[in-house]
Structures are given as structure tokens and as C-alpha cells.
Simulated assay, not measured.
Amino acid sequence: MSIALYPYNILESGTLTVTGTADTGYPESRLHDRSAVLLWKDTVTEAKTFHIDQGASNILPVDLLYVAGHNFDGATLAWQYSDDDSAWTDAVTGWTQGGNGVITKSLSSAVSHRYWRFTVTSMSNPQCGEIIMSRGYAFTLLGDPRPIQADRGNVARFESIGGMSRRVKLGDPRRSWDMDLRLGDAAARNSLLAVLDYTGGTEKPLIIKDMDGNYYLMELLEDPRIERAPINRGYTTLRLLEAL
């Protein structure tokens, strides 16, 4: 079994521009704050282009588009790249979006281009919580212990001054994973170190593609430690919680 981790977002490292003017209090920066519940929006009826310029010297490879918290149902969408900001190539074939669920589009291998854009045809009052363009780092899971997945209740518990137990529901349940990654060679260990460098350890959430091919925005609950075992059988444990 294997997973992939997507630790960076070129909307953060590059320069993002969006056509039109966002509503007050709903800025473009919300498109890459790694929280799908804080929205960018523009109360208008028009097409939108989300344009990224990575610059000439900081071009990161990309093989994933992840869009969450949007209302693009029924709109025609496109994901494209360019080397000169003039001639554009489809990263994937354009599509008509069905529903407002999370959008994921992946490439068979990562490609490096300076300019990327995500476009939405004219619609009323577009909004979006997160757009991520990243590259996946693949890891093999240890077969034993087996990965553990659970839904964790999003509830705060506390005790009142009078000693009464109180609970406050903060939101929907959050998916959690405990899994051990095999780090049997230097390449695997270096990939993990690269992931942690991009996320700042537990500082920033990241995208995970689980063993069933599902994508989630999750946060590390603790900094992974690389355990070294004989005959290059190193491993590390990831404890992940869904970021809402």
C-alpha cells in the first residue's frame, strides 16, 4: 500500500492574481491559507481567472489541482499551464463541473512551468475556499502495524466552575489517520524531509492521497521522527487530523 503527500502550494510561493475585485473581508489570500472554510468571494456575474506566476527562478513542479469550498456547480472549468504567459496548454481536458464537492485533477507525472491558471466561465457570485496546485511525494506504508483510520468528534469538553461537565460541538467530525511509512533508503528519507521543510513540520496542513485514492486536507499532529532500523528498514509514524 502507498500514499502521497502534497506539501506545498504554488499559489503561496508564486504571485496570484484574480480577475475582478474580491468582496471586502473575502480577499484572494484566503484561496491559499490552507483552510477551506474561510472563503474568497466576489458578488458579481462574470468569468474568473486565477493566474499564478512562479517567477523565473522558483519553478516548482505540479501534478495536482485541488479545489475546495467552492460553488462552481454547472460552470465550465479549465486548468492550464504556459511558459510565456501567452500560449496555453490544457493540463487536463476542460470540464463542466457537477456539484460543489472537492475538485481533484491529477497528472501522471509532475510538470514544471512558470505560469498556471484555473478558469471559471461566467457565473453569479463565485466563491471558493481553497485552490492548491502541488506535487506529490509517494511513500510505501508498512504492512504491520496496519494504518488506523477513524472519525474524531469535533467537540470541546470542559468543566464549569460548579463542576458540571460541558461539551460544545465545534463542527463536523474530522477524519484522522495513524500510519507508518517505510523509509528504507535515502531517497525516501529525503522525500520526507522535503515534505516537512515545505510544511514547517506541524505548521501548515498538507494534502494526503490515501491508499484508496481519496484526497484530504490534513494537519500533522506531531513532528514525525525517523526511526532507524537494521538493514535499511527505517520508518516513521504519521499522525494526521483533517483540517476543516
Score class of each variant (00 low, 15 high):
residue 11 L to S: 08
residue 44 V to N: 03
residue 29 S to F: 02
residue 29 S to Y: 03
residue 26 Y to W: 05
residue 34 R to Q: 10
residue 27 P to H: 09
residue 14 G to S: 10
residue 22 A to H: 04
residue 49 T to Q: 01
residue 32 H to E: 03
residue 31 L to E: 00
residue 30 R to I: 05
residue 55 G to F: 12
residue 43 T to M: 13
residue 35 S to I: 03
residue 44 V to G: 00
residue 23 D to K: 00
residue 53 D to Y: 10
residue 18 V to W: 03
residue 13 S to C: 14
residue 35 S to G: 02
residue 44 V to H: 04
residue 15 T to S: 15
residue 13 S to F: 12
residue 20 G to Y: 15
residue 52 I to Y: 12
residue 31 L to Q: 01
residue 14 G to V: 12
residue 35 S to N: 11
residue 39 L to R: 13
residue 10 I to D: 02
residue 41 K to L: 15
residue 45 T to I: 12
residue 43 T to P: 01
residue 37 V to S: 14
residue 14 G to W: 14
residue 48 K to M: 11
residue 40 W to I: 05
residue 50 F to D: 09
residue 24 T to A: 12
residue 28 E to T: 02
residue 11 L to I: 09
residue 27 P to R: 01
residue 25 G to W: 12
residue 42 D to A: 13
residue 49 T to L: 08
residue 31 L to V: 00
residue 16 L to V: 14
residue 38 L to A: 11
residue 14 G to T: 12
residue 38 L to V: 01
residue 44 V to A: 05
residue 22 A to K: 03
residue 40 W to V: 07
residue 15 T to N: 04
residue 31 L to A: 11
residue 35 S to A: 00
residue 37 V to C: 02
residue 27 P to E: 08
residue 41 K to F: 10
residue 34 R to C: 04
residue 30 R to H: 11
residue 55 G to D: 06
residue 10 I to W: 01
residue 39 L to E: 07
residue 15 T to W: 07
residue 12 E to W: 10
residue 35 S to R: 05
residue 36 A to Y: 05
residue 31 L to Y: 04
residue 19 T to Y: 13
residue 17 T to Y: 09
residue 54 Q to Y: 13
residue 46 E to C: 03
residue 24 T to G: 10
residue 13 S to E: 15
residue 19 T to N: 10
residue 20 G to L: 13
residue 10 I to S: 08
residue 51 H to Y: 11
residue 28 E to S: 08
residue 27 P to M: 10
residue 52 I to T: 00
residue 17 T to H: 00
residue 37 V to N: 02
residue 35 S to Y: 05
residue 24 T to S: 13
residue 39 L to I: 09
residue 13 S to Q: 13
residue 45 T to V: 12
residue 29 S to D: 00
residue 24 T to M: 06
residue 38 L to N: 00
residue 24 T to N: 03
residue 39 L to Q: 07
residue 23 D to Q: 01
residue 33 D to Y: 08
residue 54 Q to A: 15
residue 21 T to K: 07
residue 29 S to A: 08
residue 15 T to R: 04
residue 17 T to P: 02
residue 41 K to N: 09
residue 45 T to E: 08
residue 36 A to T: 03
residue 51 H to N: 09
residue 40 W to K: 06
residue 31 L to R: 07
residue 13 S to A: 14
residue 24 T to E: 06
residue 46 E to W: 01
residue 42 D to S: 15
residue 37 V to K: 01
residue 20 G to C: 12
residue 38 L to Y: 04
residue 53 D to R: 14
residue 51 H to C: 09
residue 31 L to T: 02
residue 53 D to V: 14
residue 36 A to S: 06
residue 34 R to G: 08
residue 14 G to A: 14
residue 27 P to N: 13
residue 54 Q to T: 12
residue 44 V to D: 11
residue 35 S to W: 03
residue 16 L to M: 14
residue 39 L to A: 04
residue 34 R to K: 09
residue 42 D to N: 06
residue 35 S to M: 06
residue 16 L to C: 09
residue 46 E to F: 02
residue 38 L to G: 01
residue 10 I to N: 06
residue 34 R to D: 13
residue 25 G to V: 13
residue 10 I to K: 05
residue 30 R to Q: 11
residue 30 R to Y: 07
residue 19 T to P: 14
residue 28 E to Y: 03
residue 37 V to D: 05
residue 41 K to H: 13
residue 19 T to D: 15
residue 42 D to V: 02
residue 21 T to W: 01
residue 22 A to D: 08
residue 38 L to R: 02
residue 21 T to F: 02
residue 41 K to V: 09
residue 36 A to P: 00
residue 23 D to P: 01
residue 43 T to D: 13
residue 52 I to F: 09
residue 55 G to I: 04
residue 21 T to H: 04
